[in-house]
């Protein structure tokens, strides 16, 4: 198995990288949506982030990556009785995946060959405590999308079918990517993603050359390349770990709450989810920077990614949503 491209070696794309780091610090932010052209390193970044994160402790062989023996559901026969460290799971959800593969279903092989009613876990079980990555999320079947929304919101996968009645934990960070030219995403789904970023292939020639240079170096000699970037990857990992530890102690002043609320009101974003996400993201950002409390700088740096996809679409507004967010931000957060 080839090692993932180092996270720190990804050139540019700072917004995408920082969105991913923020969800790694606080998974409660709720997923990242990356929209942009093909070949801009979307999938590379997701896999790189997972490789960068510290391993998670799971019960050996557990289908749901259970953290402790008590968490192992009784249908899980494969689970052992010791705790091991495994890399953070990143599960790909391919387009055209059937509902059975996603939520899990009756294990037909077992049913037929042994006459037992057993549960075969799906992708949602395997993604528990990790990342669920959906490339081309905008082309996903509607009923799979509905199902994902439901599970992502509740953190629990409920299976009621074929005589099975099972529920298991399914807490994961949803990472979706896609190309807006090929179709839009329903607002209900858009809203469930905590953060959203747009990526473009780098416009600066030097930056592009850098991308190819690093990629070539990685292809020719992966070991040496990984070695070279290990230090920086470790730095990011340590900052993420430190930020996770600091997160509960970050102070939220009333002024910050007021700023978030005013920003969301002015933008007319639907529901409270925007405010909550903005606050969570700002807190994670403060923790990452080692600040004791949330300041306007933190809010400013995360506002576009937390809010731009929650605005009501105005077909006649030519400027993008992010532009609207920054315009308003300039007015409100003076």
């Amino acid at each position: 198995m080839k090692h993932a491209f180092p996270f720190s070696a990804i050139v540019g794309q700072s917004e995408m990288k920082s969105a991913m780091i923020l969800t790694a610090i606080d998974p409660g932010i709720g997923g990242v949506l990356v929209f942009g052209d093909r070949g801009t390193g979307k999938s590379t970044a997701v896999r790189a982030l997972a490789a960068l994160l510290p391993p998670v402790s799971v019960v050996r062989g557990s289908a749901t990556n259970a953290a402790a023996l008590d968490d192992v559901p009784d249908w899980d026969r494969g689970a052992g009785d010791e705790i091991v460290d495994v890399p953070t799971p990143v599960i790909d959800l391919p387009l055209g995946a059937t509902e059975d593969r996603v939520v899990g279903a009756l294990d037909i092989e077992r049913a037929i060959t042994h006459g037992e009613k057993a549960f075969e876990p799906g992708l949602l079980a395997r993604a528990n405590r990790g990342y669920l990555y959906i490339d081309e999320v905008n082309l996903l079947e509607d009923h799979i999308v509905d199902l994902l929304l439901d599970v992502a919101a509740s953190g629990e996968n409920v299976i009621e079918r074929e005589g099975l009645s099972i529920r298991h934990d399914a807490r994961f960070v949803l990472v979706g990517s896609g190309n807006p030219e090929e179709g839009e995403l329903r607002p209900q789904l858009l809203d469930r993603f905590g953060l959203s970023v747009e990526v473009r292939s780098p416009q600066d020639v030097e930056e592009r050359i850098d991308v190819i240079r690093r990629r070539a170096a990685y292809d020719v000699n992966p070991e040496a390349f990984l070695q070279k970037w290990r230090g920086e990857d470790l730095n990011i990992r340590n900052s993420i770990l430190a930020a996770r530890a600091a997160l509960p102690n970050i102070e939220t002043k009333d002024a910050a709450l007021r700023d978030c609320a005013e920003l969301c009101l002015a933008l007319g974003s639907d529901g409270l989810r925007g405010e909550l996400t903005l606050l969570r993201a700002a807190r994670a950002q403060a923790a990452y920077e080692g600040a004791p409390s949330i300041t306007r700088t933190h809010i400013r740096s995360v506002a576009a990614m937390a809010l731009s996809h929650r605005l009501r679409r105005d077909p006649l507004d030519e400027a993008g949503s992010s532009a609207r967010v920054s315009r308003l931000m300039a007015d409100i957060l003076v």
């Binding site: 093909r38 070949g39 390193g41 473009r200 292939s201 592009r208 050359i209 190819i212 240079r213 070539a216």
Partner: peptide
């Protein structure tokens, strides 16, 4: 590397996979 990347950009090829494949 530089020549290939610049050529790709000038030909309006946005994807970064193209220069990698050309290389």
């Amino acid at each position: 590397i530089a020549a290939l990347t610049v050529a790709a950009a000038r030909l309006g090829i946005g994807s970064m996979r193209a220069p990698v494949l050309a290389l």
